[in-house]
Amino acid sequence: MMSNIINNSSLQSNESFDFIFKIVLIGDCSTGKSCIVERFRNGTYNEPQPATVGVDFSIKTVCMHGKTIKLQIWDTAGMERFRTVTQSYYRSANGVIIVYDTTKRATFLNVQKWIDEARRNTGSNVLLFLVGTKCDLEDEREVELSEAEEMRDYIPEIMFVLETSAKENKNIDDVFFCLAEELKKKHDQMAILENAEEDRPVNISESKPISQCALICD
C-alpha cells in the first residue's frame, strides 16, 4: 500500500500536491460508472454516455484540510470480456468504487462477484466503497438502501455505502471526498505505524523472569 502512495517529492509534476491516490470504478455494464466520473470531473451530465471500451482515465485534484489530494480515476468497462485486459489496472489501486444500479436488481446481485474480483486483483489494504446510482428514479427502484447497508455490515471489506444521482448531482462529490478522506486517514495511520516500528517500544510480554542474580562484592 505504501508504495502505491506517491509522495509529491518523487514526481516532477508542475502541479503541486500532497497526496496522490488511485481509484478504480468497477461494476456491471450501464450502471453509470462513466456518468459518475463525468459529473465529478466536469460537473456535467450527458445522457447517454457511450459504452466504455477498455479503460478511461481522468484526474481531479481536491483540497481537504489544507492538503492537496490528486485523484487518479480509472473508469473500467463493465463487460466481462474486457476483464482480462483491465485487471492490470486495478493492481495498484488505493480505493475501489463498486457501482450498482438501484433500478436494476441484477447489478446489485453481482456486487459480490465484483468484490471477489477486487479481492483477487488488488492489495489487501485497498478501500472498498459501494455506490448505488440513479437514485433519482424512485419509481423504478429495485434495490433498497437498507439492503446495501446490510451488505456492508455483512462484508467487512466494504467500508461505505452511498446512493447517488449523477443527473441530479446528488452525493457524487461526497463519494470521492469520503474516499479521499479515508485514504488520507489510512495513509497517516500507516505512517504512524511505520514510525512506531522504527523506534520499537519495549514489549512487556517479551521480558523474562530473572533466575540468577549477580552480586557485586568488593
Binding site: 457511450p50 471500451v53 477498455g54 479503460v55 485486459v85 483491465t86 492490470s88 489496472y89
Partner: peptide, 16 residues
C-alpha cells in the same frame, strides 16, 4: 503504461 490506451482504436477501427 502498457498498450491499453489504443484498445478502443484497434477494436473499433478508431471510430469510437
Amino acid at each position: 503504461v502498457g498498450s491499453m490506451f489504443c484498445l478502443p482504436w484497434f477494436l473499433t477501427w478508431y471510430s469510437h
